[in-house]
Amino acid sequence: MGIVATGVGKSIGKPIVRILGDISLEIRSGEFVALTGRSGSGKSTLLYILSTLDDASEGRVEIDGRDVARMSATEISEIRNERVGFVFQFHYLLAELTALENVLMPARKTGRTEELTSYARELLGRFGLGGKEDRLPRQLSGGEQQRLAIARALVMKPRYLFADEPTGSLDSANSEIVMKLIRESNRNFGTTVIMVTHDLGYAGWADRRIHLVDGRISSTPTST
């Protein structure tokens, strides 16, 4: 179980620009992995390919032993819904829905809203959002919004949590809180975390760091 990438590359645009090349790596279940590198090094692109949001131009990505390229659109949407949680740099919440409704949006897809409502409330309480379930995202602070986004990513109890610069738009105090929540989900629930960050301090919280330079892994993945 885990994610295995073999010879993954990505090219985009006309004329073709190669932004990732020959990436091979394995992320084991329960790991906390940080993808680091400068802007434009291809770390976000790699994250999106590993998480099924983007396609690889070459190579193969396997999630829990299954080749993503061979999956149907329905299977990929099931993986996104049940096995994968996303946290983006910007919170990306639905402005028209309350905090609780935002958290329950993944559950709504499979008709599990009622089943997961108490768990969603529990998550909100744990993330310091207790009593704010009925507030709209605009009525919450930036840090609260990001915590809400993490709660939404975790409500389906996913096996994998993908985070793209989750602290990129937050101040240091809120960044600390968000990072603690991500680490807790990894340690307490065994969620595999793959996080893109250019903050080497937070990268140090991970079990392993993969550093990218110009779309390639610069050295052998290191354990901390």
Binding site: S77, N81, E82, F86, A95, M105, K109, T110
Partner: peptide, 12 residues
């Protein structure tokens, strides 16, 4: 933005 969120949450 909402479309991107929904697609990432598994909506087809």
């Amino acid at each position: 933005k909402d479309i991107a969120i929904l697609r990432s949450l598994g909506y087809q």
